[in-house]
Design a protein around this nucleic acid. Structure first.
Lengths: 203, 203
DNA sequence: GTCTATATATTGATAGAC
DNA sequence: GTCTATCAATATATAGAC
């Protein structure tokens, strides 16, 4: 008889792995309402646990967000890598595809560089978060260098351009600046891909 | 003997034009802390008035923000227009300068499209705000068309690219993604100008 | 038109029972 | 490890005195 056998209808007591569940549910909350609306209390309510329970596993809000941010950075890097690999052999196409992948991820998960580099969590000096962020930036830098841009300083500028472009498209889309009635997520991802490709090709 | 003759040391009672002072002080608060940290109570405290006073002039938080957003849109349009005019005869240079002006304004005032097109205030259907936002977009569209991009649909795509790029640079800079130690506001404004110029020239 | 005082909600976080 | 109960902040907004 497992611990899950209780027929209490929505009132669960046991969660097997609450730390992991907190990360998952935090992601859901970010996807629905964005970082501005994030709160530990909401996460707890969504999980059906008390508002005190999360603090047994994450000492405060920023530590929870740091764990969420590190997971987001890893997933985002994987999505960018997969998009670049699936975009064919042209380095500019691959670079543009990376931008589109960022837009898709940031819009659908509500978590982009604003979450990954948020001031509060970053101030904690979490090593896992720092490493995940660095890995993501290294990946983008490699994709920029593959387009043939030299010297390294110019490649970094190109990365900055792509990040700004994709982040801008993603946040403005989430905020409703690009009307949902006229633009689908596919549309703005395609915009970001095209513009990123042009930036890479225009050097 | 003017009403200002009272020596109550910081305890003022009279403000001549409180509605205007509320807008001014809201701007200061946005510049310091950004939209996420904005509150009617903080504005009131900064002005040295009670937290109830603002509600005599703006029925709620969103109506105050709508007035602030309309003023921001007008000032931003003026800044963009001035930057474009001061950028010389080349339409691509002028277009890039418009992006740089957006970055400077959004960073130093904490108010860009996120404030101007924020969901709450926009839901009010304020005519002045809608007109100010439209004027700003028309200005950017004209600058895009001046670069020779056709048809109109392509010009609108170019505007979307510039807005996303500039907004991304501005918000990421404010959020600390581009380290202040290595990038000045002038640096990222220059980045936005160059990238905007490249986007315009690359068509 | 501005103030004081208040009602109500939400949050982050803690103490102590179980 | 989770809960109940609670505190201190802070916010939006309103009522009524002046």
């Amino acid at each position: 008889m497992a611990t899950e056998d209780n027929e209490d209808a929505g009132r669960r007591y046991h969660h097997g792995d609450l730390p992991a569940a907190l990360i998952r549910t935090s992601f859901e909350l970010l996807a629905d309402n964005g970082l501005a609306d994030f709160s530990v209390a909401k996460v707890a309510r969504r999980l059906g646990i008390s508002t005190a329970a999360p603090y047994r596993h994450y000492s405060d809000r920023d530590h929870l967000l740091a764990a969420v941010a590190a997971a987001a950075a890893r997933q985002l890097a994987a999505a960018v890598r997969a998009a670049a690999e699936g975009a064919g052999p042209d380095p500019a196409d691959r670079f543009g595809a990376a931008g589109a992948a960022y837009v898709r991820f940031a819009v659908s998960h509500g978590a982009g560089f604003d979450v990954i580099y948020a001031a509060g969590p970053r101030g904690l000096g979490d090593a896992a978060l720092a490493a995940a962020g660095r890995e993501l930036m290294d990946l983008l830098t490699t994709l920029a260098e593959d387009t043939g841009v030299r010297p390294k300083e110019d490649a970094l500028r190109l990365v900055g351009d792509l990040v700004a472009l994709a982040h801008g498209y993603a946040t403005l889309y989430r905020d409703g600046f690009f009307p949902r009635a006229r633009y689908s997520l596919d549309d703005i991802a395609a915009h970001a891909a095209r513009a990123g490709r042009e930036l890479a090709a225009g050097r």
